[in-house]
């Protein structure tokens, strides 16, 4: 069979059943904090990742981290290490693990786990202050995690 055929089939599968190819939060395997394979099965989109990183209701990474490559995001926090040059310090797999659940790399980290759905004390439905009525979604989707990772791996110095 041709390569084109396989690509076309893969693309179709993604469109018709995106969840089937995704790794669910509870099924993620961490090796020393890192996640080897893409959570969606394909690379993310760096431009979309940048948006996630600066949007308060999504990643909001700038709340805690300074990100010199995104100067247009104002009032960047100083809680955590600046992210510039982060791709020189970590591999793609390590970065994916850090974004999905930084506590797998840094024990008791203050950084929220963006791809985790269980094990919380009094979780709420997003920022409503109320108990969730449905299963808790992760803060970021698998696609958004991959988009953020795609942006982070561009951050070399």
């Amino acid at each position: 069979m041709t390569r084109q055929f396989w690509l076309a089939t893969a693309a179709m599968l993604c469109i018709t059943s995106p969840v089937a190819s995704e790794t669910a939060p509870s099924a993620v395997t961490y090796v020393d904090g890192a996640i080897d394979v893409s959570l969606t099965g394909s690379p993310g989109d760096a431009a979309a990742g940048k948006k996630v990183m600066t949007t308060a209701s999504l990643g909001n990474c700038v709340a805690c981290h300074q990100i010199g490559t995104i100067p247009e995001a104002d009032f960047q926090g100083d809680i955590a290490p600046p992210l510039d040059g982060v791709a020189d310090r970590y591999s793609e797999a390590e970065l994916r693990g850090l974004v999905a659940n930084a506590k797998m790399t840094f024990e008791d980290s203050f950084m929220p786990a963006f791809y985790k759905t269980e094990g919380f004390t009094r979780p709420g439905a997003a920022y409503s202050g109320k108990a969730p009525t449905e299963d808790l979604p992760p803060i970021l989707t698998a696609q958004q995690i991959e988009d953020v990772v795609a942006y982070l791996i561009t951050m070399t110095e």
């Binding site: 909001n60 100083d78 809680i79 203050f110 929220p112 004390t121 979780p123 709420g124």
Partner: peptide, 25 residues
């Protein structure tokens, strides 16, 4: 000192460990 919610943060995480720092603005 209990880390509440999906962000798993306690009062102490913000007001003891990170007092004086900026969380966004």
């Amino acid at each position: 000192y209990t880390r509440f919610g999906q962000l798993e943060m306690s009062c102490a995480n913000c007001h003891e460990d990170n007092q004086g720092r900026y969380i966004r603005a």
